[in-house]
Design a protein around this nucleic acid. Structure first.
Length: 558
RNA sequence: UGCCCCCUCGUCCAACGGCAGGACAUCGGACUUUGGAUCCGAGAAUGGUGGUUCGAAUCCACCGGGGGCAACCA
């Protein structure tokens, strides 16, 4: 913590460090993560979670998980569960689990307090009139005819509103601020409104529901939050925040500070659009591995550590950002590189027959599970035999200069295996290559030539007889354009190649009994995870988390 | 159009009146039983114009650009 105080990573930590040093709040740092439970947590939330929980942890404080469930429409326990699961999965633990809906009674009493202070009034205009009288950005609003209602009348109305005597929209409680305020949000903001609707937690106990600008500052203040960290779009709400906590008499009230949201290239983040992708069947569900949801990323094979590292890299500032996908992919590869075992999997098999290898023989070769530069140990045995499969892309009949893989007459190394030389190309009637007839050099077992000769390339392979058939799901960016938010119809920008399902891939037998959710690097191909939903012994399914960096692909492009 | 916020390499983040630096990306090279990883190197930025100052990315003014706000959503 002293380290953080010495070198704050961003303007927020800088501010918190200063507040801690000055003893500004006279209490330990307390933050909160306040999601509305009306959608699934996504990678944008990850940033907020890392900031809210991270700041508290770094400064020896606490962070509450508070559900901002003040709007009965759309909120549901299933979203509450999702947030709980995903926050814990990310590696954070909250101090208290709280619900703004538990404060309804308190909110109401603060409403009465404001009325008594002459700082709020019951307005009986229609919603149309309220909107019209708010004015515009250039023209001031006009006072409600009910603005100067006597306190007693306001109180009476407010009590009857709570008692359910009025239909939806008949009256609202408004703060009495300034209908000509340059900040539109300060033009007598609505605080409480009547809504005869069941709440997922409160049932029919309430028909008076607070609005964000009323509930949020009060919730923070009630809980004794010190630093209320939120995203930039709440900047204008900060004026009300300060007004409200002062009017309600809180001593050393929380301070709201805004930072920019995370946005990522080639995806969308709004709940509405995410929901549309699910409802339209563009994706298989909220946890589709192409979704930017935490559950989607998890199913994709991303780890909490990788995600946290990414957020760290993306940084915290007040500048609206759009982070490149490459930054995320790097964080994921960097994390997975040092922790997952390597295995051999041929995605698009091409048969290879070793004409000088004895028929029917199988030998089991020792293969390390980690490369020399990863500080983990372990190995497994992989079968080798006369009939193998190699990657179709690893053979070219007429290769360009820099193609280092297999070609007629050329010798390559089979990873952990032998050197082989391509002697003959077998094609079907349509001219498609269906088999390679090669010879192997028995002296190169394990991949080293005793005579010291070198080969240009090393390719992966599996033994035809023992390899396991599997399905491989190749995921790619969900959209074809970096910013799907700026087009009319974002659905039209969905990448048709965002999922390519490959059946008939072959993986080495060692993975056959691993539990679903096991992560691997398929050597030379990418990082994969066995799918937690669909993968079963005997019917293995692997999701591509992210491909390996591919220098050859770049060379090929030219 | 009124108010508010923002503007530094392609991207993200530093530099808090004193030599514009890092990460990712890009391009070269080394190494390599993954065309992975790693290592080395290169190119690459203060939106513009004035002002204050010995000195400005930093302070001020204006201009330009981007974003937010006119739900009884959050």
């Amino acid at each position: 913590m002293s380290q953080d105080a010495a070198a704050p990573r961003d303007f927020i930590r800088e501010m918190v460090a200063a507040d801690v040093a000055s003893g500004r709040f006279g209490r330990p740092v307390k933050t909160r993560f306040p999601p509305e439970p009306n959608g699934f947590p996504h990678i944008g939330h990850v940033k907020a979670i890392c900031v809210d929980f991270g700041v508290a942890k770094e400064f020896g404080g606490t962070c509450n998980l508070r559900f901002d469930d003040t709007n009965p429409a759309g909120e549901d326990v299933k979203y509450v569960e999702a947030f709980r699961t995903d926050i814990r999965w990310l590696g954070f633990e909250w101090d208290a689990e709280l619900y703004a809906s538990d404060y309804f009674e308190q909110f109401y009493r603060y409403g009465e307090l404001l009325v008594q202070r002459g700082s709020a009034y019951v307005d009986s205009q229609t919603d149309d009139e309220i909107r019209k009288n708010r004015g515009t950005v250039t023209a001031p609003g006009t006072n409600s005819p009910y603005r100067d209602r006597p306190v007693a009348e306001n109180l009476d109305l407010l009590r009857r509103m709570k008692a359910g005597e009025f239909p939806d929209g008949a009256h609202v409680l408004r703060g009495k601020i300034d209908m000509a305020h340059p900040n539109m949000l300060m033009r007598d903001p609505i605080l409480l409104r009547i809504r005869h609707a069941p709440h997922y937690r409160q049932g029919d106990a309430w028909c008076l529901y607070p609005l964000y600008d009323f509930a949020h500052p009060l919730s923070d203040a009630i809980e004794g939050v010190t630093h209320s960290l939120c995203s930039l779009e709440f900047k204008d709400n900060n004026d009300i925040y300060r007004w409200l906590v002062r009017e309600c008499g809180f001593d050393r009230p929380p301070e709201q500070t805004e930072f920019s949201r995370l946005s990522l290239e080639y995806t969308v983040m709004s709940k509405r659009k995410l929901l549309r992708l699910v409802n339209d069947g563009v994706v298989s569900g909220w946890d589709d591995p192409r979704m930017p949801t935490i559950s989607g990323l998890r199913r994709r094979g991303v780890t909490p550590e990788g995600l946290r590292a990414f957020v760290e890299t993306a940084g915290v500032s007040r500048k609206p950002q759009r982070t490149e996908l490459a930054t995320l992919e790097h964080a994921i590869r960097n994390d997975l590189n040092t922790r997952v075992p390597r295995v051999l999997c041929v995605v698009n098999p091409l048969k290879v027959v070793l004409t000088n290898y004895p028929e029917g023989e199988v030998e089991w070769l020792e293969a390390p599970s980690y490369p020399h530069d990863v500080p983990l140990t372990g190995s497994r045995r992989v079968p080798f035999s006369r009939e193998l499969y190699i990657e179709r892309d690893d053979f070219m009949e007429d290769p360009p200069k820099k193609f280092f893989r297999l070609a007629p007459g050329r010798e390559v190394r089979l990873r952990y295996g032998y050197f082989i030389t391509c002697r003959e190309v077998v094609k079907d009637s349509s001219g498609r290559v269906v088999e390679l007839r090669c010879t192997y050099d028995p002296a190169t077992r394990g991949g080293d030539a005793p005579d010291g000769r070198k080969v240009q390339g090393t390719i992966h392979w599996v033994s035809a007889g023992q390899a396991l058939d599997c399905e491989v799901r190749l995921y790619d960016r969900l959209f074809t354009i970096p910013n799907p938010d700026e087009v009319e119809d974002f659905i039209a920008a969905v990448n048709p190649g965002s999922l390519v399902v490959v059946r008939g891939a072959r993986v080495e037998p060692s993975v056959g009994s691993d539990p679903p959710g096991t992560r691997y690097q398929f050597e030379r191909t990418g990082y994969f995870v066995s799918d937690v939903v669909d993968s079963r012994p005997g019917a293995l399914v692997f999701n591509r988390t992210v491909g390996l960096r591919d220098t050859w692909a770049k060379v090929k492009e030219r």
